Simulated scan of single mutants.
Amino acid sequence: MTTAANPETPSTLDVASLRHLLESGRAPRLIDVRTPGEFETAHIPGSHNVPLDLLREHRAELRAHLDEQTVLVCLSDRRATQAGQDLAAAGLPGLRVLTGGVTAWQAAGAPVASGKPRWSLERQVRLVAGSVVLGSILVSTAVPRAKWLAAAIGGGLAFAALSDTCAMGMMLAKLPYNRGPRTDIATVLGALADGRG
């Protein structure tokens, strides 16, 4: 079930439809592609954490455990869409993405498993980018060339929007704060094989 415009773009599923599937006993496999730290903060009960970078690296191994009943989840739906495209390119089309991600799920009042609170990657990117821009503009009053750092950050953010990627977010995801519990492919495959959440 991919879109006609791009065969590698996964189809979507809204919160109400997913809740209906979960309540009807026909629960799809939920794969949350956020960082382990984000997943630990709040996730849909029964979902499996397969961080996007781990999914990309081991997509061939994951294919045996996923099918068209799989729903990909992230904070909004951007990373989940990327994961769906990566898996489609690896020969696993037909996956679905939860529209609006965990944010929409929580807004609908759906149940959430909560843990240690952390800032989302998107919020961290806004903090770091805004701080660098503000700092470089303030420093540029004494050192005029510092304004170019602000320009570089602005250019990077514009590129991130146009390419739907975020280098700063990928770098921040590697910080110990965002790592959370260790997630490795053997643990993920074991949980998927056992059906554990």
Rank of each mutant, 00 (worst) to 15 (best):
V125N: 01
A158K: 01
C166T: 03
L75F: 12
L21R: 15
A158P: 02
S120G: 06
L22S: 10
Y177G: 00
S140R: 08
D194W: 00
G130Q: 05
F159R: 07
R196K: 15
L162D: 00
G195Q: 00
A150F: 09
R26S: 13
K174D: 01
H58F: 07
A27G: 14
N6R: 14
V143N: 01
K116S: 13
Q69R: 15
L30E: 00
L92Q: 12
H58W: 10
I44E: 06
G101A: 07
L22G: 07
R19I: 07
L92F: 10
G100T: 07
G169R: 04
R126G: 00
R118Q: 11
A88T: 11
W105M: 01
L72P: 09
L30R: 00
N6A: 12
G169H: 07
S136K: 12
P111H: 09
R145L: 13
L121D: 06
L192W: 09
L13A: 09
V50F: 07
R59N: 10
I137A: 09
Q124W: 08
L175P: 04
P176S: 04
L87K: 09
T12P: 01
P93S: 14
L134Y: 04
S136Y: 08
V128G: 03
G156F: 06
V15L: 01
L95V: 09
A173F: 09
L162G: 01
A129L: 03
D86L: 14
T70K: 12
G37W: 13
G130W: 08
S47D: 01
W119I: 10
R59D: 04
A158I: 13
A108I: 10
W105G: 00
E122M: 09
V15Q: 02
L189W: 02
P51C: 05
P36E: 13
R19T: 12
L149S: 06
G190I: 02
P51T: 03
I185D: 00
N49K: 09
L87I: 12
G37H: 10
R78G: 08
R196V: 11
D53R: 10
P51K: 06
A160K: 04
L189S: 05
G197D: 12
K116Y: 07
L87P: 06
V133I: 15
S136M: 13
G94A: 05
T187C: 03
I153L: 08
S24R: 14
P93A: 14
V125L: 02
H43Q: 07
L62R: 03
G130L: 08
E8P: 02
A158Y: 07
S47L: 10
T165N: 05
S163K: 10
A150Y: 04
G94E: 06
S120L: 11
V112T: 14
G169W: 05
